[in-house]
C-alpha cells in the first residue's frame, strides 16, 4: 500500500507539469499584450517595445516556457503579479487558508448533513419523509449560491442585525458564507447517498445480514453504509475540488480574500502571471484531493485496496480441503 501511495505522489508531478505547460501555452497564444498590462493604458509604443524586451516576451516559445517552468518548479516562485507587482507566492499564502477553510468546513457540513439525510431518505423510500427530503435536496441543488448569499445577508444582517454582512474575523463572519457555499454540496451529497443506499439496500448481503438477526442500526452502519460510501467518496472529492475553486462568488460577495477571488480579479485585469500561478496552485490542490479520495476509497473498500496494492493474497500452501 505504501508503494502505491508513493507511486501516486510521484505521478502527480507529471500531471502538474502538464497543467503548467498547458496553461502557459494557452496564455501564450491568447491574443493580448502582457507588456501592455504591466505598463498600463496610454503608454507609447516604444516604451511598450522596451518593456516587452525586458520581460523577455520576444524570446521564442520554448525559451519562455523553459524559463517559466524553471522559475516555478525549481525556484518555487510563482512570479510577480503584473498589475500589483506583488509576489504571487506570498499572495497565495495569504489567501489559500481562507479558501481552504471555506471549502473544508463546507464539505464537512455536506458530509455531516447530507449523508444522514440521504440514508434516512433511502430507508423510508417513497414515504413522506423521503418525499420532503427529495424536494429539499432539489431546492438545495437548484438555488444559486449568490442569491442565497444575498438573501441571507438581507435577513440576518439587515433585518435582524445578528451577523456581520461581510469581512473576515471571528466565527460570526463565517456563518453565512459557509451556509451559502455548502447548501449545494449538501444537497448533492444527500441525493448521491440516497441513490447509492437504495442500490445497496436491495443487495443480497443485506438479506444475509438481516437473516443473522442483527439490529437495524447495526445493519445500516456496518453493512449498508460502508458499501454505499464508495461512490459517495468520489462525489465528495469532486465536490470539494469544486468548492475550493468555485467559492469565488461567495468570496466576492462576502469580501473574503480567497484564491477564487484573486483569480477572477487576475482574469479581468489580464494579469497573466497571477492567473497562471493561481491555476497551478489549484491544480496541485485538486490533485492532492483526488489522491486523498482514492486512498480513502481504498481504505473503505478492500477490493480497491487489493487492486492498488497489486498483490493478490492467495495462499500458496496446498490444503486438501480448500478448493
Amino acid at each position: 500500500m505504501l508503494k502505491y501511495i508513493l507511486k501516486r505522489l510521484l505521478m502527480m508531478i507529471p500531471v502538474i507539469l502538464c497543467v503548467a505547460i498547458l496553461v502557459f501555452t494557452i496564455i501564450y497564444f491568447t491574443p493580448g499584450d502582457a507588456a501592455q498590462v504591466v505598463a498600463g493604458q496610454g503608454t507609447p509604443a516604444e516604451k511598450l517595445d522596451e518593456l516587452r524586451e525586458s520581460m523577455g516576451l520576444n524570446d521564442p516559445y520554448f525559451v519562455q516556457l523553459g524559463r517559466y517552468l524553471h522559475q516555478v518548479f525549481v525556484k518555487l516562485d510563482l512570479g510577480t503579479a503584473m498589475v500589483n507587482k506583488t509576489s504571487i507566492t506570498s499572495d497565495m499564502q495569504a489567501r489559500f487558508p481562507y479558501s481552504m477553510t471555506l471549502a473544508l468546513i463546507g464539505i464537512a457540513f455536506a458530509i455531516c448533513v447530507g449523508i444522514p439525510l440521504g440514508v434516512y431518505s433511502a430507508l423510508h423510500q417513497n414515504k413522506v419523509g423521503d418525499r420532503i427530503a427529495v424536494v429539499v435536496s432539489m431546492l438545495g441543488v437548484s438555488v444559486p449560491h449568490f442569491w442565497l448569499a444575498l438573501m441571507l445577508i438581507l435577513l440576518f444582517s439587515v433585518k435582524l442585525g445578528w451577523l456581520p454582512a461581510y469581512g473576515v474575523g471571528g466565527i460570526a463572519y463565517w456563518i453565512m458564507p459557509i451556509i451559502a457555499n455548502c447548501v449545494g454540496g449538501m444537497a448533492t451529497t444527500a441525493r448521491q447517498t440516497r441513490s447509492s443506499m437504495l442500490e445497496v439496500i436491495h443487495c443480497d448481503y443485506i438479506v444475509t445480514a438481516r437473516s443473522k438477526g442483527l439490529k437495524q442500526s447495526q445493519i445500516i452502519l456496518r453493512h449498508m453504509l460502508p458499501n454505499a460510501l464508495i461512490p459517495i467518496i468520489t462525489v465528495t472529492g469532486m465536490n470539494f475540488g469544486g468548492m475550493l475553486g468555485g467559492g469565488l462568488i461567495i468570496e466576492q460577495i462576502f469580501t473574503i480574500p480567497g484564491v477564487g477571488f484573486y483569480l477572477t480579479k487576475g482574469i479581468t485585469q489580464r494579469d497573466y502571471y497571477a492567473v497562471m500561478g493561481g491555476v497551478i496552485l489549484l491544480s496541485v490542490a485538486f490533485s492532492v484531493i483526488m489522491l486523498a479520495t482514492d486512498l480513502i476509497q481504498a481504505f473503505v473498500d478492500p477490493r480497491i485496496k487489493a487492486q492498488y496494492a497489486g498483490d493478490v493474497k492467495r495462499r500458496r500452501k496446498p490444503h486438501a480441503r480448500e478448493a
Binding site: 445577508i153 438581507l154 461581510y166 466576492q252 462576502f254 469580501t255 477571488f261
Partner: peptide, 12 residues
C-alpha cells in the same frame, strides 16, 4: 473595507 460587491456597499 473593500466592498467589491455593489449590493454589499449599498447595504453597508
Amino acid at each position: 473595507n473593500f466592498l467589491t460587491e455593489t449590493t454589499q456597499m449599498a447595504l453597508a
